[in-house]
Amino acid sequence: MAEPLHTGRTRGMGELIDIAGKTTELAPFGTTLAELGRERPEIVGLTADMGRYSDILPFRDAHPTRFFNVGMAEQDLIMIAAGLSKVGKIAYCTTYSVFITRRAYDFVAISCAHSKANVKIFAGMPGLVNGYGATHQATEDLNMMRGIADLTIIDPCDATELKQVVRAVADIPGTVYVRSLRGKVPVELPDSYRFQLGKAQVIHEGGGKVGIISTGYMSARAMDAARLAAEQGIASSVLHVGTIKPFDTAGVIAFAQRFDRLIVAENHKTTGGLNTLVVEALYDAGIMKPLIKVGLADSFFECGSQEYLEAKYGVDLPRMLRAILEGN
């Protein structure tokens, strides 16, 4: 393998990164949406000047008359999507998570969720997957969006799940917020995996005393860490919470009851996201167990390469492994 040129610096947002040892799939969101668009003529696609960087261009190329770029106007993106939906369209819209959540929150809440608008928001670059610093890192998006009633929130693990989610949301009534994955997206889950709305699923059954509850691509990292830990004699299992809202309280409790200690892992601050949801569920169920939070601090984060940022802020593979092996 050639020397990677991308380490040690902030990368361009359009740059496609090969991840060592991973099978990847290019633009699973856009290619699946383009396919689905052939089956469902009521689907329209929108972006706010982030077509290239949200992977929706395959849809544009396949269905040019049903694609709209509203420019750098996220409020307009959401309002137009809501209006399109009120005339029978299923509006898939894209930009970065930060701009959907921080810029257009009121519009997602009122024009979409409150209005039960058939709008499917594929929010690119969620969490710490972008080296452009805090302006481009949606590290509190789950916290914000879970506060909106009548909004479905999905945080897919990999390309396999994302492709299924693209199709599934077309039949989920109302507004859906998906933490989308772009570029060369790793394939982590087996072909047999089936996304089920509102159902957490065990994606690594290793038994043991350590239960990992995770969401988004941190579920893939959790599986990697669990496999490495098993080689060192520590068994663990991974529950992937693909749907953040509605939250699978019963599934999480049933899983947590099986283990002596728990790890919650998310590509998000440890406040207001999955960790908070898990702790709320456990407390309500009267379950008190040691629990390690793997996630981001309540802070704004700097620019840099993905590897640098993940290591610095404690969401990389060694951090996961330490939580399993050492319990801290």
Partner: peptide, 30 residues
């Protein structure tokens, strides 16, 4: 918007024109 004849949830100002644009786009598309 659950009132017959009302097309949008009002109240938060600045939401109407954008939704109307989306409706107009969809009607043209169809």
């Amino acid at each position: 918007d659950d009132i017959p004849g009302v097309e949008m949830v009002g109240g938060s100002l600045g939401h109407g024109l954008g939704q109307a644009v989306g409706m107009a786009m969809a009607l043209k598309l169809d």
